[in-house]
């Protein structure tokens, strides 16, 4: 089932960074999952297939699993992509700890993200249970 995990990593890159990955990032991802084997369970496969069809559900699935099964392989797959993003220079502004953020704007934005994270997590718990 490993092949299915490695299929279409682009949707998860887009989920995390908001843009299509370059060839180097995808190449790194494929190299990484050779060392970190990901064999989805049936349920994780269903969640993965659902994500492929409806990418807007990914934050809900991810958030739901973060609360119920934080060590799910579905999340590990996204985590590997996160690690790769953090070591690609073009994503430095995305993962660079507030270098250019003004305090009040940053606080407001983070507050909104916190609300969104709580909402997607709660909705995600229900979604993950239903799938």
């Amino acid at each position: 089932m490993q092949a299915e995990a490695s299929l279409n990593p682009e949707i998860y890159f887009r989920y995390l960074s908001g843009k299509n990955p370059d060839a180097k990032s995808v190449e790194l991802y494929r190299a990484a999952i050779k060392h970190h084997k990901i064999e989805f369970s049936k349920k994780e496969n269903r969640l993965h297939n659902l994500s492929l069809r409806f990418p807007f559900l990914i934050p809900f699935i991810d958030g739901g699993l973060a609360l119920t099964q934080p060590l799910s392989l579905y999340r590990k797959n996204i985590y590997i992509i996160l690690c790769i993003l953090e070591t690609c220079p073009e994503y430095f502004p995305l993962l660079s700890s507030s270098y250019d953020k003004k305090s009040s704007a940053g606080f407001f934005k983070t507050f909104l993200h916190g609300i969104r994270a709580a909402f997607t997590g709660l909705f995600g718990v229900i979604l993950v249970k239903l799938i």
Binding site: D62, A66, G106, T110, A117, G121
Partner: peptide
């Protein structure tokens, strides 16, 4: 305990 996308901006902050 949150989704990774929001986790990025929360932890960045």
């Amino acid at each position: 305990p949150v989704n990774f996308r929001d986790g990025i901006s929360l932890m960045n902050f």
